[in-house]
């Protein structure tokens, strides 16, 4: 009974379109004409004859591996810092969340150029520090992905807030008891905080990982949808989007979507499989 709304939503709104996309992945479909069954042709083309597919996989994996741990560490660090009894923390918490409010707005493309462009803030700071011949970070193929990773870390507000909520659930008497036993700050963090909020860490890890695999909006806005310069920010879903909405190859895009689903599912399964070693639930 509790599950009823979810079941209706799942079957009515999500499952139908999902199955449609699965079926479409075995068809040639350009939106305008009726889909035509082509078997595994789309999948064959993806694996056998598409160098840009591999490029986009590479970009996406690099992004996931680098930005997810960085962002989570940052978010957790700041959350712990903001969970202390310092005065005015309410204000800081809100200020630190501000970037996340902006993170997907169209203005971000402009703002990011103000920081990482040739005359941007970042170069001005480096210039003050004595560096010369500074690159244009956004328009240099080797560096562009780095600016997007920075953008992702910069919008760490969501996991931070979830960490904060988790930290708030840790009963304070645990800390008091530990303090009585003479445990230092780090010991308390490692022995109490981490285990107690491990379900929340786990949640953030899974969700940020899935989100990173699917990164789209920021990459789309910053590169204007091209994934440039020279495909250096061609994220998987950006390429998928180009295939669907620029090239009208919806069958191909659907096949790519299901390949990504399998990749993500594999990583999520790995995370779940190892989770009973380090995630502690109140029910145990």
């Amino acid at each position: 009974m509790f599950l009823l709304p979810w079941l209706i939503g799942m079957i009515g709104i999500t499952l139908g379109p999902m199955i449609a996309s699965l079926l479409l992945s075995f068809t040639d479909y350009n939106f305008l004409r009726a889909p035509e069954w082509v078997g595994i042709d789309n999948y064959a083309r993806i694996f056998a004859d598409d160098p840009r597919f591999l490029t986009s996989l590479g970009v996406t994996f690099t992004y996931v591996v680098v930005s997810v741990p960085l962002q989570l560490a940052f978010a957790l660090g700041i959350a712990v810092l903001l969970n202390q009894g310092l005065r005015g923390l309410a204000f800081y918490r809100s200020v630190y969340y501000l970037p996340s409010l902006l993170g997907t707005s169209v203005a971000i493309a402009i703002l990011w150029r103000q920081i990482f462009g040739a005359d941007g803030l970042f170069n001005q700071l480096l210039g003050l520090a004595g560096f010369e011949d500074l690159p244009n970070w956004i328009a240099t193929p080797e560096l562009a992905l780095g600016t997007l990773i920075t953008l992702n870390v910069w919008t760490f507000g969501s996991p931070m807030v979830i960490f904060l909520a988790g930290l708030r659930q840790v009963p304070s008497e645990l800390y008091e008891a530990a303090a009585v036993d003479g445990a230092g700050r780090w010991t308390r963090f490692a022995r109490i905080t981490i285990p107690m909020i491990s379900p929340v860490i786990f949640f953030n890890l899974i969700l940020q990982m899935i989100g990173a695999f699917q990164t789209f909006t920021q990459a789309y806005i910053v590169s204007g949808g091209s994934g440039g310069p020279v495909d250096s920010t061609l994220f998987y879903t950006l390429y998928l989007y180009q295939k669907a909405f620029r090239d009208f190859d919806m069958g191909y895009a659907s096949a790519m979507a299901w390949i990504l689903l399998l990749i993500i599912a594999l990583f999520t399964w790995l995370a779940f499989a190892t989770s009973n070693r380090w995630v502690h639930y109140g029910e145990d």
Binding site: G12, G16, P17, I19, A20, L23, L24, T27, Y29, A34, P35
Partner: peptide, 13 residues
């Protein structure tokens, strides 16, 4: 309806 979407969501539509 496009054929495929029709197959899967026919009940509703």
């Amino acid at each position: 309806l496009t054929t495929v979407a029709g197959l899967t969501t026919a009940g509703l539509l």
